[in-house]
Design a binder for these strands. Structure first.
Lengths: 218, 218
DNA sequence: CCGCGAGTGTCACTCGGTGTCAAGGCGCTA
DNA sequence: TAGCGCCTTGACACCGAGTGACACTCGCGG
C-alpha cells in the first residue's frame, strides 16, 4: 500500500508537505516494524507476543492491530510491495519482447533490491530467512504469491491477447515465473546472501524459457 | 498417513483384523471429518467453531485436537494423501521416461481420483472448492504443496542424477508440475466439476514439456 | 474558544490451541 | 475373578491472537 518498509529513511521533505498526523502515523508504523523485526529475528516468531512488540514500540496491542492485519503481516509486508512491483514491471516491458525475457525482467527488479547490500543492510535477507523458516510466515507468503500470480496471469493474458478463461498458458507462465522467484529466494536465503540473485534468476529462466516462449495459441 | 478420508466406507474386514481400539479411533475420526465437512461447507469456515464441530460429532473440543492439528487440518487432509501419492507415482515411473511424461503421470493419478464421480460423490469437489475459496484453508494447502515440492524435487534429482544443491532444475521442474496441478485443480473447481481433469492436465503439460524435457545438465 | 475528527488506550470478549489431571474401558496375567 | 497397565476421553485452566465498544486526547479549522 505505502512505501516499502525498508525505505523508512525517506525524509526528503521535512516540511509539512504531508500533514503532521500522517507523519505521526508513519512514525508509529516504522517503530512497530522496527520493534517486531528486532524481537522476532532475535527470539523467533512464536516466542514473541504481539503485546511485547507493541510494548517495545510504546503502544498498545490494540494499536498494533490498527496498523497490521495480523502478527504475520508486519513481517510479510517486507515483501508485499515486491508483488505489485513485479506486475508493474511486466506491464512496462515492450510489447514485442518474448515472454521469457519480459517475465525475467519483471521478477528481477524486486530481487535486485535484495541483492544490493549496504543500502538496506541485511534487513531483506533476515526477513526472507525468517519467512522461509517460519511455517506461519511461509504460509502467508505463499498466500501473497498466489495473489501476485493472479495479477501476473491477467497482465500476461492482456499482453498476449489470450483468453485466461480458456487458455491455460497465462496461468502457467505466471506460475513458472513465481516458481523461479521462489527458488531464487530460497537459494539466496540458504546461502546467507552469498549467492547472486541476478545470476540465479538468469539460470532459472534459462530452464523455463523453452516453455515460456513456445507460445503457440492452440 | 492413513487411508484417504473419503474411503470411509472400507469395511471389508468386520472381524478383529485390527484391534477394536483402532477401529474405534477410526470411527471417531470419520465422525469428526463428516461433521466438519457438513458444517463447514454449509455455513462457511469462519462461521463454525471447533466446539460446534466436536459437539456435532459427540466428542469434546479437546478430542478434536487429538485427531487434527488444527481446524484447517480436518479439511486439508482430504488432499494430504495426494501429495505423497504424487511422489510415489513418480518413483514408480520407468527410468527412461522423459521428465514431462513421468511428472504428468505422477500428477494425473491423484487428479483422476477427483475426476471419477459416483464413487466418492461430490465430496472431493466440495472440499477443493472450500479450500480454494477460504483464505485460511488455501494458505494451509499451499503449505502442503510446498512440502510436496521438496519431495518431488528430491525424487527428480535422484532420478536424473542431478545435484539439487547446485542445480536449479529439479526444484523448478517440481514447481512447474505443481503449478500445473494447481491450475488444473482451480479450473476444475471453477467449472463445478464440469471440466475434465485429465484433459486439462494433458493441456498443461503440453505447455510445460519444452522446458521439462530440455534437460541439458549445464 | 469551540467543535470536530482522527488516533489511541482500556476493557471485555470470542475463539483456536495446549497442558494437566482424573476417570473409565480394554487387554493381559496370575 | 481380581489386579494391573495402557490408551482414550472429558473437564478445567490457561495462553495468545484478534475484535468490538467506549471514552479520552490531541491537532486543526471555524
Amino acid at each position: 500500500m505505502t512505501s516499502p518498509a525498508w525505505r523508512y529513511d525517506r525524509r526528503v521533505t521535512p516540511g509539512p508537505a504531508v500533514s503532521l498526523a500522517q507523519r505521526k502515523r508513519q512514525l508509529v508504523e516504522d517503530e512497530l516494524t522496527e520493534a517486531a523485526f528486532r524481537l522476532l529475528t532475535a527470539q523467533g516468531f512464536d516466542a514473541v507476543t504481539v503485546d511485547t512488540i507493541a510494548a517495545e514500540a510504546g503502544v498498545s496491542k490494540r494499536t498494533f492491530f490498527r496498523y497490521f492485519a495480523s502478527k504475520e503481516d508486519v513481517i510479510v509486508r517486507f515483501l508485499a510491495d515486491l508483488g505489485s512491483g513485479i506486475r508493474a514491471e511486466l506491464a512496462a516491458r515492450p510489447a514485442g519482447e518474448p515472454p521469457s525475457a519480459a517475465l525475467r525482467q519483471a521478477v528481477s527488479v524486486p530481487l535486485t533490491v535484495c541483492g544490493t547490500h549496504g543500502e538496506h543492510g541485511e534487513r531483506p535477507l533476515r526477513a526472507v530467512q525468517l519467512i522461509l523458516r517460519t511455517p506461519a510466515l511461509h504460509a502467508r507468503f505463499l498466500e501473497r504469491q498466489a495473489e501476485w500470480r493472479e495479477g501476473l496471469s491477467a497482465e500476461l493474458a492482456a499482453r498476449l491477447g489470450r483468453d485466461p478463461a480458456t487458455d491455460l498458458y497465462p496461468r502457467l507462465a505466471a506460475g513458472m515465473a513465481l516458481t523461479a522467484f521462489g527458488a531464487v529466494l530460497e537459494r539466496w536465503s540458504d546461502s546467507d546472501g552469498a549467492a547472486d540473485p541476478a545470476a540465479l534468476t538468469a539460470e532459472a529462466f534459462a530452464v523455463l524459457a523453452p516453455a515460456l516462449d513456445a507460445a503457440a495459441p492452440s
